[in-house]
């Protein structure tokens, strides 16, 4: 998956590392969590030698998840954390054209509202998962009534994050072809960019910040 000439850089190495740390820890957490949440999924513990190890994996993966999420928030907050009104409102009205056919879906910036929602859900519930998870891990000095609700919150977090995660996975792969390279090489095709984030593309071109593979970087700022 080597980028080709003319492809456009949409993510730098740091962003990609953060993404993968978050993604992998999240997947491990979900699988190991699932193994403990439902007796029917207890079998997930077999490859790691039992539930106790699964719990350890879950807990310590959580420790990777924490900085990953914090960096993710730092990295994407500006682009994905703030709604761009009124354009984003228009997008919502037609669901970005993802669910039914829309002739001309509203143009979006780097991230569309769906992606922003995903980001916000992961950021918000991720923090809830971290806090509730840590309390569940070290519950003993806190009031029982409080600790009890942490379990519900943790389950609620899963209830919210998993669907978003899966949709993200789907749309990041077969649902929106051409997306995946963004998190591997950092380069996507110009046409992908035109469809997914035309406003951003235009802005980058206008400011001369666009990096295109195989071309000299715009130099004006240097």
């Amino acid at each position: 998956m080597i980028p080709k000439k003319g492809m456009i850089k949409v993510s730098d190495a740091f962003e990609r590392i953060v993404h993968w740390c978050l993604a992998i820890s999240c997947i491990v957490l979900m699988i190991s969590g699932l193994g403990m949440m439902f007796h029917a999924f207890n079998f997930l513990a077999i490859p790691v030698g039992g539930l106790k190890n699964l719990k350890l994996i879950h807990n310590f993966t959580g420790l990777i998840f924490i900085p990953s999420l914090l960096f993710a928030i730092l990295v994407w907050w500006k682009e994905a954390g703030v709604l761009d009104l009124p354009d984003d409102f228009e997008w919502i009205k037609c669901a970005g054209g993802y669910l039914w056919h829309v002739e001309n879906p509203p143009e979006t910036g780097k991230y569309n509202v769906g992606q922003k929602a995903f980001f916000l859900a992961v950021a918000g519930f991720g923090i809830i998962m971290i806090i509730s998870g840590l309390i569940m891990w070290f519950p003993l000095s806190l009031p029982t009534g409080l600790v009890r609700w942490m379990y519900s919150l943790h389950a609620l977090g899963f209830f919210v994050i998993f669907p978003f995660f899966f949709v993200h996975l789907y749309l990041g792969t077969i649902g929106v072809p051409g997306s995946a390279p963004a998190v591997f090489t950092g380069y996507v095709t110009r046409s992908w960019c035109n469809k997914q984030c035309p406003k951003w593309l235009r802005k980058m071109e206008e400011t001369g910040k666009l990096e295109v593979y195989g071309e000299e970087k715009a130099v004006s700022e240097h």
Binding site: M1, V167, G178, T189
Partner: peptide
């Protein structure tokens, strides 16, 4: 997601001008 893929189909992000999109 399955139904979306089957019914709605993936989003077309390709362009006539760009072959790379197919591979990407």
């Amino acid at each position: 997601s399955l139904f979306h893929y089957i019914i709605h189909g993936p989003k077309d992000t390709g362009g006539d001008d760009d072959q790379a999109s197919q591979e990407g």
